[in-house]
Design a protein around this nucleic acid. Sequence first.
DNA 1: GCCGATACAGAAATCGCTTACTAGGTTCGA
DNA 2: TCGAACCTAGTAAGCGATTTCTGTATCGGC
Lengths: 381, 381
Amino acid sequence: MTAGPRRKRSGMPDSPPPSRSRRPAPAGGGPQRATVQDVAEAAGVSTATVSRVLNGNYPVAAETRRKVERAVRSLGYVVNAHARALAGSFTRTVGIIVADVVDPFFAHIAHGVTRQAAEDGKLCLVCSTYGVLGGELDLIDVLNEQRAEAVVVVGGGAYDPVYSRRLAERAKALNRAGSWLILCGRPPLAAGVPTGVIDYDNAGGAFAVTEYLLGLGHRRILYLGGPEELSTHHLRLEGFRKAHAARGLPVDERLIQRGAFSRRFGYERTAQLLESGEAGGFTAVFGGNDNVAVGVLQAAREAGLQVPRDLSVVGYDDIPLASEVLPALTTVHLPLEQMGREAVRLAAVLRGEAEGSKDTRHLGTHLVIRDSTGAPSAPVG
Amino acid sequence: MTAGPRRKRSGMPDSPPPSRSRRPAPAGGGPQRATVQDVAEAAGVSTATVSRVLNGNYPVAAETRRKVERAVRSLGYVVNAHARALAGSFTRTVGIIVADVVDPFFAHIAHGVTRQAAEDGKLCLVCSTYGVLGGELDLIDVLNEQRAEAVVVVGGGAYDPVYSRRLAERAKALNRAGSWLILCGRPPLAAGVPTGVIDYDNAGGAFAVTEYLLGLGHRRILYLGGPEELSTHHLRLEGFRKAHAARGLPVDERLIQRGAFSRRFGYERTAQLLESGEAGGFTAVFGGNDNVAVGVLQAAREAGLQVPRDLSVVGYDDIPLASEVLPALTTVHLPLEQMGREAVRLAAVLRGEAEGSKDTRHLGTHLVIRDSTGAPSAPVG
DNA sequence: GCCGATACAGAAATCGCTTACTAGGTTCGA
DNA sequence: TCGAACCTAGTAAGCGATTTCTGTATCGGC
C-alpha cells in the first residue's frame, strides 16, 4: 500500500541479439513500401548515401547519384515524412485553425496561409472548429502533436479570462518546443506570452465606415453585430461608438443588436426590426461583417425597401461577395489573403528562418465605397 | 563497372556501446519537449506503461494510471505524432486535394471530408492545386509521404490518357502501401486500378435541367461550359445534348461556349455574346456551374435584361450562393458535404476499418426550381 | 498448501530516416 | 617524396513512440 519506491532496473542481457533479417515474413499481406534500406541495397550503396542524394545536402559523386536515382525510380520509393520528421529536426508543417473553411472570410485567409506555406516548401494543415469554442484549444494540441512549426489561429477571440489563460498555456507549450502560436486578426494575449500577432485596425475601420455614414447625414444607424463574446465584435462596436462620440452624438442602445456573424442573422433580425419597429427607426445599417450585411440587403428587398434610397447598408471585411451583390456593398476592405501570408512569414521570422523584425504586424484597412450607401431619407423600422 | 553484387554486412561490434545518458547537453538552447521517457521517469514506471496509459489498450492498475496521468499533466507532455506514426502502424490522417478551397463547390466538399474525418478521430490535410493541373500528382506524392490513409481527389478530372496513366500509377503506389485514392465527383480510372469512387450523375443532372428548359418551350439555349479538358464539363455537355436529342431537336454549335468555371467567364462571355449577337440569339442560358450562372445574371442585368422575363438562367451544383442571388437560381442540387463524408467513409470501408460494400458510390442529384427560369420570350444576343 | 490462471509491469526490439564520426583514396604544394 | 587538404562513402547512434516477449506477484480452487 505504500507508494512504491523507485525501482532499479536490472540491466543484464544474457543472450546476444540474434541477427535477424529485416522483414522476416514477406508472405504477410500487410502493406509494403520500399525503404531507404531497399534503395540502398538496390543501388549498392549505404543508406547514408541514399539520404544524401535525396536531400542534396552533401556531396555525392555524379555516378553514385545516378545509381541511387535509378533505384529510387524503379522501386517507386517515397520517403516517409514521419521518419524524416523524427530523425531530422523540423517538420516543415504549419497549421491553421479557423471557425469554418466555408466562410469566405476564413477561406481567403486560409488560402493565403496555404499558398505562402506551399511557396516556402511547407505543408499546411487546415483545421476547423465549426463554432465549438473549446475546439480551438483541442486543435492546437493536435497540431502540437503534429509538431507544426507554427499554429495560426484566425479570427476574433473570446474575451474570457479563463479562455485567454488556456490559450496562453498553449502558446507557451508550443514555444517551449520551438514552435509559435500566431494570432491572426485577433488582439494579443497578455504581455510576455510568446506569440506572433497579425492584426488590422478593427476599431479604426469601424470608425471610418461609421463616420462616413454620419457624414452622409445619417443619425440613426443600426449596428448588427456578431457574437457577444468575440473580440472582433467588441472592437467594431467600439469604433462605431467612437465615431458617434467624436461628433458628440449619442447612441441609442436599441440600435445595437447582437447575434451571429451570419447572413441568416442579418436577414432575420432586420426583418424582425422592420416589422416590429422596436429599434425606434433607422436610416442605415452597419452589418458586423459582409455576411450580415448581405442578409440585411435581402430583408430590405423583401420589405420593399430600395437600397440605398430608403436605407443605406454597409458591411465589413470586403469578401468578394460584397462586390457581387446588388447593390454592391460599401464596406471596409481587409487584406485577407495577405493576412494569411504574413502569418506564415512572421512565423518564419520568429523561428529565425528568415530575416525580419517585430513580433506584431499591423495591416491597413480602408473604406470601399460602392452602391449601397447614400443620403438618408425617412427612418424605417 | 559491374553492377555491384549485394554486399554482406559485416556485423562485428568490437566495443561495447558506451552507456550514454539521454540528452547530454541540457544547456543547449534547442527546443525541449517532454518525452515518454521523461514521463516514465517522473512517474517511476517504464515507457511501456506510459504508452499503455496513453492508449488505454492494455490493463494498467488504477494507481499506476493516476501516477502517469499526473506526470503527463505536470510535464505538459504531448505525444509526438510522428514517432507514433512510425512505431505504430497507422497515421489516422486523410488528405484531400481540391483546385481551390475558396471556391464554394470545393469548400463544401472539403467541409464534409474534414468533418467526417474529425468525427472518426482522424486528421485531415487539405491541399489546393490552384489550377495547376500537374499539381494534383505532386500533392498525391506529398500525401503519400505523409502516409495518409486515404487521398481524396475532388472535381472533374482531365480527359488525358497520359494524365490518367500517371494518376493510375499513383493510385497503385498508394494502394501498395495500404492507402486508397478516392475519386470524388470524377469518373473512374481504367478497370483494375485500385480506387474508390464517389460519383453523382453529372450527365443526368444536365439532362434534367435542359429537359426542364426545353419543356418550358426554350429552343435556343446557350451552354456556357467549363474548361475544355474537364470531365465535369464533358459530362454536363453530354446531358445537354442528350436532352435535345431525346426530343429530336438539333443543337446549334454556336450556342456551345467553353471557358473557365468562373463567375468572370460567365459574365464576360455573356456580355460579349449579347453585344455581338454571334451566337445567333438565345432565350435561356445553362451555366456550366453556379458561378458561371451568377456571372450570367450580372451580365443580363447590366444589359437591361430582366431574368426570367427576358432570359432564363440555370446553374449547376446548388452552392448556397445559388439561392442567395436575385433572382434565386434554378439549378441542379449536388450533395456536396455528403460527397466529402462518403469519401472518408468509403476509404474506411476499403481499408477494412468499417463495414460496407462496393468501391463505388453513386449519389443522387435533383433539379431545384427557383426564380430564374420561365417561359421564353424573344431571343436575345 | 500447491498450482495454474490472471493481472501488471519492464526490457528491448523495432519503425525509417538523418547525421555526426570515421576512414580510404586522390590531388597537390613544399 | 610526404603529408595536408579534399572528396566520397560507410558505420552506427539516435529521434520518440509502440509492442512483443518475459517475468513476477497475487489469487482462487481443490
